[in-house]
Design a binder for these strands. Structure first.
Lengths: 183, 183
DNA sequence: CGGTGCATCTTGTCGGTGACAAGTTTCGTT
DNA sequence: AACGAAACTTGTCACCGACAAGATGCACCG
C-alpha cells in the first residue's frame, strides 16, 4: 500500500507544520504529531530536519523567501513605499504560521546559512524601497520607522491585541502606514 | 533547615521564571526547572498557578500592570506623545521576559480576569495620550500608528532582527517615533 | 492552651515528547 | 545482479506537564 519511501516527506512535514502552527501556534507543535499527520513513524521527520529546531529553521527560511518574493512582486508592479508596507502586513496575515516562526529566533537555528541568506534578501528588498521615501528625512530612520510600523501592526493584529480590529486589516494597514508620510 | 512552607513561593517562582525566560525565551521554561531553581519539589509551583499556562497568565498580568505603571509615570511627569512611546520601548527592553509573554496569548489564559483588566488599563493609558496627537489627523488612526510603530520597533529590537541595531535603543526609538509627527 | 481545619508542599505515577541508536527496506549506480 | 547510500522504522531514555494522594505546618477557634 503505502510505500516505504514516502516520496516527498520533507515537503509533507513542512506543510503539516504550517497547518498545525496555524491551528495551535508554533510552540504547540510536536514532531511526533506531525509524523502522525503525515502517516509516518515517529522518527521519520528527524531524518530530514535533524531536530525540531531544524524543522523550524526550514520553515523560517521558506518564510523569508516567500516574504521577499511578495515584496518584490509589489515593488515591481509599481507599488510605492506604503504599498510595500501593506504587502508586508498582508504576508504576515496570509502566512501567519511562517511569520510567527520567522520572528522567534529562539525557536530555530538563526545562524543557519539558508535562513540567514533568505533573511538578508528580504531585508534588501525592504531597503530598496527607501529611495522612494517622501520628504527630506533621513532615509535610514524613515525606513526603520516604516518597517517598525508595519511589523508592529501585523504583530498586534496576529496576536489579537487590538481592541477593535475591524474586518479589513489591509485597508487599516494602509491608513496607518499612510500616517508616516502625510503632513 | 529549609521550612516546609517556603514563605513566598509564588513570588519566588515568578522571579525565577523571569530569569529563566530572559535566559532562554518563554517557550524553553519548565515548571520542574523553576521548582528546582527555587528549591521545592517538582509539583510545588502547581499549587499556586494551577498549570504552566497559569504561571504565564500571572506573568502576563504582572507585565501589563508594570507597563501601565511605566506609561502613567511618563505621562504624569510631562512626557508628550513621543515620550510615552519611548517609555513603551524602554519597558519592552527592560522587562523583556514579561513583554515576550504578554504578546503570546497562545501561551496563557488570555481570557483570565486579572490579565484582562491589567491589559485594559494599559490600553487606556495608551489611549490617554491621544489628546496630544499633533496635527489635524484622525486621532484613532494616529494612535494605532504610534502603538504599532513602537511595538514593532521593540519587537524587532528584542528579536535581534535589526541588521545594525546600534547601542542605544531609546534614542533610536525616539528618532523613529518622531518620524510620525514631523513634516 | 489544645485541637482541628485548611493551605502548602511532597511523593508517586501516567502519557506524551525530543533525541538518539540501531535495524530494515528501498533506491541509485555500476 | 550487487552493493552502498538514503529513507524510514523500531526501540529506548530522560524529561516534562498533569493529576492523585499523602505529609506537614499554620491559623483560628474553643
Amino acid at each position: 500500500m503505502s510505500p516505504y519511501h514516502h516520496g516527498d516527506l520533507r515537503r509533507a512535514v513542512l506543510a503539516a507544520a504550517v497547518t498545525a502552527i496555524t491551528e495551535n501556534g508554533p510552540t504547540a507543535i510536536s514532531l511526533r504529531d506531525l509524523a502522525r499527520r503525515v502517516g509516518v513513524s515517529h522518527a521519520g521527520p528527524v531524518h530530514h530536519f535533524k531536530d525540531k529546531a531544524g524543522l523550524l529553521t526550514a520553515l523560517a527560511a521558506e518564510g523569508f523567501d516567500l516574504l521577499a518574493d511578495a515584496l518584490v512582486e509589489t515593488r515591481d508592479s509599481g507599488g510605492n513605499f506604503v504599498e510595500i508596507g501593506v504587502s508586508y502586513v498582508r504576508f504576515a496575515i496570509e502566512h501567519r504560521a511562517h511569520f510567527e516562526v520567522m520572528f522567534r529566533p529562539d525557536l530555530y537555528h538563526s545562524d543557519d546559512e539558508s535562513v540567514a541568506t533568505a533573511q538578508q534578501r528580504a531585508r534588501e528588498v525592504l531597503v530598496s524601497g527607501a529611495g522612494q521615501v517622501p520628504g527630506d528625512r533621513d532615509p535610514e530612520v524613515a525606513k526603520l520607522a516604516a518597517w517598525s510600523l508595519v511589523h508592529g501592526f501585523a504583530t498586534l493584529w496576529n496576536t489579537g491585541s487590538l481592541s477593535d480590529p475591524g474586518d479589513d486589516p489591509e485597508s487599516t494597514a494602509r491608513a496607518v502606514a499612510g500616517m508616516l508620510f502625510s503632513k
